Each structure stands twice: as structure tokens, then as C-alpha cells.
Simulated assay, not measured.
Amino acid sequence: MRLVLISLAASLVAATPALANEARVEARGGIMWNSSDSEELAGVAAGYDFDLGETAFAGGEVSADKLLTDGTQVTFGFAARAGAKLGDAGKLYAIGGYNTENCDGCEGAWSVGAGYQHSFGKFYAKAEYRHFFPEQAGFTDTDAALVGLGVKF
């Protein structure tokens, strides 16, 4: 009986996440703009994507980004993304989430956007657009374009 249980456990371990479920970490940068100003930003992100069959996926992401200007602080983001797998290497996705405040006296912002991620073996590159809706009255909506380079696990 013990041999049967060990064999069953070994086959389950061998058959699991060899699928495309994957953890990832990345460095990223880009530009954020509104109707009156634009600023560069840099950051890091980590996430995990779950397969939803052969052609779809969904996942979560946490991030830390900083506008590269005086008077701002690191903003922490919490997002979900879902999309389609395009071939063996591409992912087209929609993303949405919440970011904490990026300056004293500011409030956080909700965001929605879209992106494309392309794998090169264990590594990947991505491009993403997001639109931010600030919670604080009197602050204008903001847009961001990001590019990232990362590694998958």
C-alpha cells in the first residue's frame, strides 16, 4: 500500500505545474502624463498567472513604482489581469487594480489598462498602457505607458 501511495504522489507532483502556470518578476519603466504634465517612472513588479485552459489565463500582480521627480514617494499597486495566450510566447491582457498615493496629501487611484507580454524562453518583455482614476476630487485622470523586462519561474 505504501508503494502505491508513493507512486501516486510522485505522479501527481510530476504532472502538476509543468503546465504554464508561472510566477514572474520584472523591472519596468515608462512615462506618466495628464493634460498638463508628464514624468518618467521606474519600478518593479511580481505576479503569478494561472492557466484557464489552453488559450486563456488570469493572475495577480503587486508592484512598487516611483515617479522620478522630487516630492513623490513609492506607490504600491495591487492588480489583477486576464487575457488570451497568443501562440507559445504571447499574452494579450486586460489589467485593473489599485495604487496607493504617490505624494503627501494625495490619495490612491484605481486603474484599468491593457498590455502585451512576449516570452523569450525564461525571460519576457512587455508593453502596457494604464489609465488612472484618482480618488481625490480636483485631481485629473492620468495615463501611463510602461515597458518591462522580466524573468519567469
Rank of each mutant, 00 (worst) to 15 (best):
F123K: 05
L19Q: 14
T142D: 06
A80K: 03
G77W: 07
A80N: 00
A46C: 11
Y116E: 03
G30A: 10
A45V: 08
T16M: 06
A109I: 08
A79V: 06
F76M: 12
L5C: 12
A56P: 00
G150W: 01
E128A: 04
S11F: 10
A114Y: 05
E26P: 00
T142Y: 00
S38A: 14
G96I: 11
W33I: 08
S63L: 04
D37S: 15
D143T: 03
R2L: 15
G77C: 11
F57I: 12
C103N: 04
T140P: 05
A89D: 06
P134L: 05
D104C: 01
Y98F: 15
R81A: 10
F153Y: 06
A27L: 15
A20R: 06
N99R: 07
I31S: 07
Y116L: 15
G60R: 03
A137K: 15
A79T: 10
A80P: 03
F120A: 04
Y93N: 04
A109S: 15
G97E: 13
G96L: 12
A18W: 05
A10P: 05
Y98P: 04
L68R: 01
A18F: 06
F50I: 03
L19N: 13
E135K: 11
A145F: 14
L149E: 03
V74M: 08
F123L: 07
E22F: 00
V74L: 08
S35E: 15
A9R: 06
E61S: 13
D51I: 03
A144M: 13
P17W: 04
Y129H: 00
D51Q: 14
F76Y: 15
V44T: 09
K152E: 00
V151P: 01
G29R: 09
G115A: 08
Q136T: 07
V112E: 09
L52N: 09
E22W: 00
A137R: 14
C106T: 02
Y116G: 05
G47L: 05
E107A: 12
E22D: 11
F123H: 04
W33M: 07
R81N: 13
T142S: 14
F132G: 10
F120S: 08
F132Q: 04
L67V: 10
F57G: 06
A58L: 14
D65F: 00
Y124P: 01
M1P: 14
A27G: 15
L8N: 10
F57D: 07
A56N: 12
S11G: 02
C103K: 01
D51T: 15
E39H: 13
D49C: 04
E26R: 11
I31D: 07
Q73A: 12
A137P: 12
F57P: 03
R24M: 09
A144P: 00
F139H: 05
R81L: 09
L5S: 13
S63Q: 10
G121Q: 02
V44K: 02
